[in-house]
Structure formats: structure tokens, C-alpha cells
């Protein structure tokens, strides 16, 4: 029997001829929350995009395995259909009505329109978002919430959250914490990218991986978050080098 999980094996990734990620290894099992932490430009979003299959991110070495099967040669839409979801840090402005994409996603999972409206209300958005162009002139909070709604409508088995906490107010942080709890309860595997540990006030991640300069420099439990909060990444970097 193959082991369930999202596996990243010895992954090295190039963007526009430049090596961004080197030998990254991860194992996210269903119901686990893994935090990827690291300073700006350390390769965190590259990791998210590569797992989801962005065509401009070239895997030069390694593999990505979803529930026992390599997904390296699958286009993004197939990865989505196999239960993978990526909530973008900054989703691009579209010319697509929010309603169009939401109903498209809901249809796949037989979710009714009434239910969509309920999700919109519960997450603290206004219904008129449906008639706006998706992500166009959305506030930071609206963008994050909209990504979460799409995640709910897609009911993924593994989800990558790319900095869901950036540019979000205190209520938003609380909401994300609650989501993490729910995802765990539903046995969803979560890879959450963040550079500060605020979202883990209510629920601790199962593992923390520190990504600096495209490499995972340190791994461990929630104690690393405290380390980062108190000393910053530079200290961690020195520590890792010493080790």
C-alpha cells in the first residue's frame, strides 16, 4: 500500500535560468500542518508554484509525489483535479466575474449556490463580490478571503497557503487559525507559508521548515517559531551554519 501524502523529494528548481530551490525535501501527511518559514526572497513562493505546476518553474532535479504517484509531468489543472489546491499570496487581477469561477468550482463538488452565499457571509465578505471581476480592486483582506472561499469550494485533500496572513488584520489572523483547525479535523494536509508565526496562536503546526536561500536550513517543531520571533532569521542562519 502506498503511503498517503504530499512528498517533495530532493527538489531543485530553476526560474529563468536561475537556480532558486536546492534539494528541498518535505513530507506532508493528511491532517498534518507544515509551516514553511523564511525571510523574503528565500524561495517560499517558488516552492508553492512548483508544487502546483507553474509552467515557468523548471524542476531540474527531484520529484513531487502525491499519494504515491509522481505529478511532475501533470499540468496545473490535473494537479488540482487530484486534490491539490494553492491559495495565492497575491492572486492576479482577472476579467472573470467572481460568480463565474465560484460557480464553476462549486459545480465540481455539487455545492449549491445557496451554500456559496452562506460561505461568503460566514467568511465576512459581501455578496456583491460575485458581480465584481475576481481580484480586481480587491482589498488585501478580500483577496485572502476569496482565496479561502475557493479552497472550500474545491474541497482539496492537500492545500498550500502562500502567506495567507500577510496584509491581514487581527480578525483575519483569527479566521486563518480557525481554518487551520478545521482543515486538520477534515484530514487535509496543509503546507502553510509564512514569515511570522502569528497564525499559530491557536493551533500548533506539526512541523516547521525554515527555508533560507532556497535551502531548508532547519526543521523541527513549534519551538522554532519562538526562536524566529525572538531572534530573527539572521540569527537562525548563523546557528544553522554553525551546526
Amino acid at each position: 500500500m502506498t503511503l498517503k501524502g504530499l512528498l517533495v523529494k530532493d527538489l531543485s528548481v530553476e526560474v529563468a535560468g536561475k537556480l532558486i530551490l536546492r534539494d528541498v525535501n518535505l513530507e506532508v501527511r493528511p491532517g498534518e500542518i507544515h509551516a514553511i518559514m523564511g525571510p523574503n526572497a528565500s524561495g517560499k513562493s517558488t516552492l508553492a508554484y512548483t508544487i502546483m505546476g507553474h509552467p515557468l518553474y523548471k524542476v531540474v532535479n527531484g520529484d513531487i509525489i502525491l499519494d504515491g504517484e509522481s505529478i511532475l509531468n501533470l499540468p496545473p489543472e490535473e494537479r488540482f483535479k487530484r486534490g491539490l489546491f494553492l491559495a495565492f499570496q497575491v492572486p492576479p487581477e482577472t476579467m472573470v466575474k467572481t460568480r463565474t469561477l465560484y460557480t464553476y468550482l462549486a459545480k465540481r463538488n455539487n455545492i449549491s449556490f445557496t451554500k456559496i452565499l452562506q460561505y461568503i457571509r460566514d467568511i465576512g465578505l459581501s455578496e456583491d463580490i460575485l458581480d465584481r471581476f475576481l481580484n480586481k480592486n480587491f482589498s488585501g483582506g478580500e483577496m485572502k478571503r476569496s482565496e479561502f472561499i475557493q479552497m472550500i469550494l474545491s474541497s482539496p485533500r492537500y492545500t498550500i497557503l502562500d502567506e495567507p496572513d500577510s496584509g491581514v488584520d487581527a480578525d483575519g489572523i483569527l479566521m486563518i487559525s480557525r481554518f487551520l483547525k478545521q482543515l486538520k479535523e477534515r484530514d487535509v494536509g496543509v503546507l502553510i507559508i509564512t514569515h511570522i508565526g502569528r497564525v499559530f496562536k491557536e493551533i500548533n503546526p506539526d512541523a516547521v521548515h525554515v527555508l533560507i536561500g532556497g535551502r531548508i536550513l532547519m526543521e523541527g517543531g513549534p519551538e522554532i517559531i519562538k526562536l524566529i520571533d525572538e531572534n530573527g532569521y539572521e540569527y537562525l542562519q548563523k546557528l544553522a551554519v554553525k551546526r
Binding site: 515557468l56 489543472e77 488540482f80 492576479p92 464553476y104 468550482l105
Partner: peptide, 18 residues
Amino acid sequence: VSKISDQLLFYLRSRGLN
């Protein structure tokens, strides 16, 4: 004049559309 960016296409493809 608008062009369809690679990022926009990737975004929608990550939502299951070819």
C-alpha cells in the same frame, strides 16, 4: 490594450480549468 499574462493563466489552471 490587455494581454493575458502567464500568471493569470496559471492561476485559472490551478483552479482546474485547462
